[in-house]
Design a protein around this nucleic acid. Structure first.
Length: 675
DNA sequence: GCACTTCTAAACAAAA
DNA sequence: TTTTTGTTTAGAAGTG
């Protein structure tokens, strides 16, 4: 399975690599991008290597642009300085078609802003276009042929240096951010892949490229400004549309984003939200230091920080440019995020495709930002939100969620979303599933897309002794998931219910209390204790498996188990003889003869009211045996085919070949059955 | 539409 | 008495 999936992912990935790699400099309308956006391309393997490749291609594009612009410059030098608005047709060369359709010539910043405001270009287009512009500027700089009107050359030169520093810092921040994202599972960079995809950009960046980046930032910022509060990624598919109708209305939500349920990260908004929530916290202020990129000025208190902020980082060209740089950083991260989302999507699709291939790719796990699901998110009550299909092997990272889900406020609006693994995929979540997103779930109030049973199992298996008390399970939940730090009553009740209801969870008592273990095999079977049926008996099968999987239990449970089987058999036989529905109790798992007799008496007297009756019957607390030997009290649920009432129970007890081992105790019928 | 699963809520009881 | 723990049931909602 794993090999198979890996192979397929790889094979698919190669096809997508072209798309992703080309996306940085080949901005074609149609085919490729549509293929990515409509989710039909099942596997998108875009990793760090792809990004590096993309960056390489980007640099190649830059070289191409330089050559092109050099030609332009030569032409201009020959023909004199021409208006940047000229519409000379330039050979497209290797410049992307859509960009070539735009004028690859020098465009003034004003024009650029105008273009950006009109949302004509996608970020990638802008990037390429700006590369061209940048290259041209660089070519022309020495001769002062062409400079933006609004920038004096000297200012530019000064700012270039400043921006280079800023950019280096930004790149460092970017790397830190990437590392952080990676730690939080937002970015999954496989070990074999090159480290940080953007690292080459940072480290190998030459001043001209830094300068170029600054220019790109300028455009990106402008683009975001024009986007307003939409918070959506610039629609990459609007290139074709908007080029013919360049208006804001042509900016549609990225279909790919809607497919993935992803929207662009909008860090500023998030920060502003947190800022609003915490009046004396500021994303730009921490540990007495101004966090403005490249500043790090020490501010004793928040007030002085505000003063500093207003004085040193007022609205001026420098601050604006720095802000744009930051925006570019964010944008780069968004791109990276989007690519990793696609990869995740492809992985999930691939793993899910076995049974649901015709379907669209699995929906994102949290849906607040999803266009398609925002309706349900806003309309549905917290408990009526749609389930989101997930696959057990899916990373389940919030990567597939829109960034907005990261925000606490948005998560609150999500409320409980029921998720479960399909029975067909009742594969236990691995530690990696959670660990991969551990940091994220610890910090973001995102409901983990695992069932309670899966989480409980995980909690138990993660414990050194493979056993946890209920309270320890609670603690694990709250420790591992920020989501479970709220509404404790709800999820704690759910945990208890699941512990009782799931066949795989086995309660063990000792003199210090009770703890829960998990029968992993039973968990994989995914069986539930059947509703409406009393379920008390000693699951020797489970017990054996449990011990097999939890050797640590042997020391506590061995002796009790030794009592269990023969006595259970005796009890069952006795009950069968008397046509008494088989009935087991916690204490029957470790009955003394007195308990056994008592149990039988009670059965005969029809006094089977409660499963623990035998405990109270034999002693106020536990039997001495129980005190010494922990009791395995969790009952095994009745299989559907076995739950057919008293007669069938007797029959089952008699005909079952593994009667005293596999089914030592059968369910007793409900009281009405007895009546 | 049905069977099933999961989640949630609630009631209840026993134990601490 | 209160809280914790555990069991059981019912119903809503999603999934296949």
């Amino acid at each position: 399975m794993m090999q198979e999936s890996g192979t397929e992912t790889k094979s698919n990935g190669s096809a997508i690599q072209n798309g992703s790699g080309g996306s940085n400099h080949l901005l074609e309308c149609g085919g490729l991008r549509e293929g990515r956006s409509n989710g039909e391309t099942p596997a998108v393997d875009i990793g760090a290597a792809d990004l590096a490749h993309a960056q390489q291609q980007q640099q190649q594009a830059l070289q191409v642009a330089r050559q092109l612009l050099l030609q332009q410059q030569q032409q201009q030098q020959v023909s004199g300085l021409k208006s940047p608005k000229r519409n000379d047709k330039q050979p497209a060369l290797q410049v992307p078609v859509s960009v070539a359709m735009m004028t690859p010539q020098v465009i003034t910043p004003q024009q650029m802003q105008q273009i950006l405001q009109q949302q004509v270009l996608s970020p990638q287009q802008l990037q390429v276009l700006l590369q061209q512009q940048q290259a041209l500027m660089l070519q022309q700089w020495p001769s002062h042929f062409f400079l933006p009107d609004f920038l004096q050359q000297q200012q530019v030169a000064t700012q270039q240096l400043a921006f280079q520093q800023q950019l280096l810092q930004m790149q460092q921040l970017q790397q830190q951010h990437l590392l952080s994202l990676q730690r939080q599972g937002l970015l999954t960079i496989q070990p074999g892949q090159p480290a940080l995809p953007l690292q080459p950009l940072a480290q190998g960046m030459i001043p001209t490229e830094l300068q170029q980046l600054w220019k790109e930032v300028t455009s990106a910022h402008t683009a975001e400004e024009t986007t307003g509060n939409n918070h959506s990624s610039l629609d990459l598919t609007t290139t074709c549309v908007s080029s013919s109708a360049p208006s804001k209305t042509s900016l549609i939500m990225n279909p790919h984003a809607s497919t993935n349920g992803q929207l662009s990260v909008h860090t500023p908004k998030r920060e502003s939200l947190s800022h609003e929530e915490h009046p004396h916290s500021h994303p730009l202020y921490g540990h007495g230091v101004c966090k403005w990129p490249g500043c790090e000025a020490v501010c004793e208190d928040f007030q002085s920080f505000l003063k500093h902020l207003n004085s040193e980082h007022a609205l001026d060209d420098r601050s604006t440019a720095q802000c744009r740089v930051q925006m570019q950083v964010v944008q780069q991260l968004e791109l990276q995020l989007a690519k990793d989302k696609e990869r995740l999507q492809a992985m999930m699709t691939h793993l899910h495709v076995k049974s649901t291939e015709p379907k669209a790719a699995p929906q994102p796990l949290n849906l607040v930002s999803s266009v398609t699901l925002s309706k349900s998110a806003s309309e549905a009550s917290p408990q009526s939100l749609p389930h989101t299909p997930t696959t057990p092997t899916a990373p389940l990272t919030p990567v597939t969620q829109g960034p907005s889900v990261i925000t606490t406020t948005s998560m609150h609006t999500v409320g409980p979303i029921r998720r479960r693994y399909s029975d067909k995929y009742n594969v236990p979540i691995s530690s990696a599933d959670i660990a991969q997103n551990q940091e994220f779930y610890k910090n973001a109030e995102v409901r983990p897309p695992f069932t309670y049973a899966s989480l409980i199992r995980q909690a138990i298996l993660e414990s050194p002794e493979k056993q946890l008390t209920l309270n320890e399970i609670y603690n694990w939940f709250t420790r591992m998931f920020a989501y479970f730090r709220r509404n404790a009553a709800t999820w704690k009740g759910a945990i208890r219910t699941n512990l009782s209801l799931h066949k795989c969870f086995i309660r063990v008592e000792d003199e210090f209390g009770s703890f829960w273990t998990v029968d992993d095999e039973e968990f994989k079977r995914g069986r539930h204790i059947q509703r409406g049926r009393p379920r008390k008996y000693c699951p020797d099968e489970n017990f054996d498996e449990l011990v097999a999987h939890n050797p640590s239990l042997i020391k506590n449970m061995q002796s009790s188990h030794a009592y269990c089987t023969p006595l259970n058999a005796a009890l069952q036989a006795s009950m069968a003889e008397n046509s008494i529905p088989l009935y087991t109790t916690a204490s029957m798992g470790n009955p003394t003869l007195g308990n056994l007799a008592s149990a039988i008496r009670e059965e005969l007297n029809g006094a089977m009211e409660h499963t623990n009756s035998n405990e109270s019957d034999s002693s106020p607390g536990r039997s001495p045996m129980q005190a010494v030997h922990p009791v395995h009290v969790k009952e095994e649920p009745l299989d559907p085919e076995e739950a057919e009432g008293p007669l069938s129970l007797v029959t089952t007890a008699n005909h079952s070949p593994d009667f005293d081992h596999d089914r030592d105790y059968e369910d007793e019928p409900v009281n009405e059955d007895m009546e």
